[in-house]
Design a binder for these strands. Structure first.
Lengths: 191, 191
DNA sequence: ATTTCATGCAAGTATGTACTTGCATGAATG
DNA sequence: CATTCATGCAAGTACATACTTGCATGAAAT
């Protein structure tokens, strides 16, 4: 992986995020990377391989961020939930357009999107769910709560907040939205 | 609006939802409508006008569904929330692929998406928020709850559940997810 | 100094897509 | 019977895009 192919990959991420998979052109990606279009094809067999590499790279980057999540059993419930929300929001915030566009590509590219949205966050999600289950045993969490769907409902709130941001930013700040999500979830899962 | 243009519009809705705005071709739309491609251009000036008409039609259809929402002040809190969730889910459920794809187009078509996702649900959303505010005055809802963001967080959970469905359907049924969303929200807003 | 190598550039091919034109046809309408 | 009108069909235009080829160039390595 040399410098030029890095430039191209990063440009491709931006252009795919902005224009969509079908809308992104190799010409525009090359232009953005300040590289000749031919050079793009010297490094990447075709547009499809470039797409695969883009997704692979972002999946990896997401994975790294999620890997940072450490849910210490000693920490109290609220701190753990906050840690999960923070790590989740950091990925969404840094990749807002990309996430929005590629969720929209789910019908067209189910496998790529699965790796992007599921595989990369799987370890953190599992840890969080396990933590909630443990907390449930310690009676910190309602016994009749389905922790798996609850964990996903929580990330769902946050995800929707980011995806719909351009539609809501005239109404309230995203911080306030996230705060409400946290409150709702705390109250919602408490025993 | 005669029969043929109806057929074309409905086919366009399907194809746009499936292939995205850039990926959809007039040829494929005509084929789906079992109509000659030339006929398509006789009814719609160009692909862009067809897109506008598609969005207008869906916005309208969404509006009609949301207009059915009647939140009687006498009904108790849970029934009102359930009514809101039901009307919201009916739109999402009937238009799953369309909603997913067009949320992904938000960067490229902000105005169209605004009418689709905001304007059409505005009255129902306002009514729901007003109801929550009233309930808050009657001490049925926590006083420190920001009802606007809470209402959106609620629809956000549901929206995310539908959008991510292809990624989660191996794990749990969407019904169970929705049930958890309702529980979380009830507990989360209660005084 | 010579070679290697990465890149740029000009040009070209093949294909697909939006959109047009002209004409044929058949059903309905007067 | 004559006319109108909606549609189909064949063909074509203009343009954009993915991808290729051949050559020039300049910097770095040997």
């Amino acid at each position: 992986m040399n410098e030029t192919s890095q430039k191209i990959l990063e440009a491709a991420i931006c252009v795919f995020a902005r224009d969509g998979v079908a809308g992104a052109t190799t010409r525009e990606i090359a232009r953005t990377a300040r590289v000749n279009e031919v050079t793009l094809f010297r490094y990447f067999k075709n547009k499809n391989e470039l797409l695969r590499r883009v997704v692979a790279r972002c999946s990896e980057s997401f994975e790294h961020v999620f890997a940072e999540a450490s849910f210490e059993t000693r920490a109290d419930l609220r701190r753990t939930v906050l840690a999960y929300a923070t790590i989740y929001m950091s990925v969404l915030h840094e990749n807002e357009d990309f996430v929005r566009t590629f969720l929209g590509e789910l019908n067209r590219h189910p496998k790529l999107c699965r790796s992007l949205f599921i595989e990369s966050s799987k370890p953190a999600r599992q840890k969080f769910i396990a933590y909630l289950q443990a907390a449930q045993k310690r009676r910190l969490v309602r016994r009749n709560l389905d922790v798996t769907t609850a964990a996903d409902a929580f990330t769902g709130m946050l995800l929707a907040g980011v995806i719909r941001r351009p539609l809501t930013e005239a109404v309230y700040r995203n911080e306030d939205y996230v705060k409400t999500c946290l409150e709702l979830f705390f109250k919602g899962i408490e025993a």
